[in-house]
Amino acid sequence: MKQFRVDLIAATPKPQLCVYLGMHQDYSDFFVADNRQIWPDDKKAGEICIRRLLAGERGHYGPMEHAQIVFNVGWFPHSVMQQARTHRVGVSFDVQSMRYTGDRICQAAEGNLDIEEVFYLRPIGNYINRQGKKYTYSLKQRNEDIKLCQLAVKRYCELINSGFSEEHARSILPFDYRQHFILSFTLRALLHFLDLRSKRDAQLEIRELCKLIWPHIESWVPEFASWYKKKRLHRALLAP
């Protein structure tokens, strides 16, 4: 999992102030932009939002949609993208396509790229399936799986070189080829995503994605992050 990566691309400046102003306009007679001289700083705005929007599980999450953040996510398996897009999380995705990005497959077939740069296999160790059954993924089993991946990339290149289209050739590849993608969240959608995917029984790899996203949240919206960590993180409480 050491290859997994999350980089920040862009984020709303003063995000907690943006949430505060959205909330404040809801119940203010005046036009809030005309009163910039009395706007709180971002930290104070975050503290006010926690008290008025979130404390006591009031669930008034609407103003949190005014703050947005964009990540570049890399080297995660395809299964993470499949899980990330379910449950109407309100996230925008742009995903590396296996229709246009097959050159790396042939590089792996030619030995110019490590096979594990292209495919993801879980680390060796002990695991539990969804029914609670324990099992072991051994080094021997993992090496056999690597051999299967190597056979698949060679076959892929044979098909491409004989004139097959990429979308046809990709059908013989192992399911968990690695993909890079862009994720765009509102603050509301981001916390809802964590509600779903950082819980203890979520897929191992998507929990790793949440772990890599979390430091960015703490830097971007520290007051919201502090409240969320105390009240909701890993508890599978779904956002309204």
Rank of each mutant, 00 (worst) to 15 (best):
E144N: 08
K147L: 10
G90T: 09
K133F: 09
R88G: 11
G132F: 11
Y100T: 08
Q150A: 00
N126E: 14
G125W: 14
Q150R: 08
G111I: 06
G90F: 12
A108C: 05
C149Y: 00
R130Q: 13
V91A: 14
Y100V: 03
F93H: 08
C149G: 02
R142W: 06
R99N: 13
K134A: 10
D114K: 06
R99H: 10
V80N: 07
G102M: 04
Q83D: 12
R122L: 05
I160P: 04
Y156N: 01
F164N: 08
N126A: 14
G125R: 10
N112D: 04
R155M: 06
F93A: 09
P123V: 09
K140G: 04
R142K: 15
Y120A: 05
K133W: 02
R88P: 01
R130L: 07
H168Y: 15
I124S: 13
K140M: 04
Y120I: 06
R88W: 12
V89F: 12
C106R: 00
D145S: 08
Y135R: 02
A108S: 03
S97W: 09
R104D: 05
D114F: 02
N161D: 13
D94Q: 10
M81E: 05
L121Y: 02
C106T: 00
D94N: 12
Q131H: 14
Y156S: 00
L159P: 10
Q107I: 01
L121G: 05
Y120G: 03
L159I: 11
Q96G: 13
D94T: 14
L148S: 08
E166S: 12
E144C: 01
E116M: 12
Y120D: 02
G132T: 07
N126R: 10
I124Y: 02
Y127W: 09
F93C: 06
Q150C: 01
N112K: 15
T86N: 07
G102I: 06
L151D: 00
E167K: 13
K133D: 10
T101F: 11
R155C: 05
G125N: 10
R142C: 05
Q150P: 11
Y137H: 11
R99F: 10
F119C: 01
Y120P: 01
L121I: 07
R122H: 03
N112V: 01
L121Q: 05
Q131S: 09
N143R: 09
R122W: 05
N112P: 00
V89T: 13
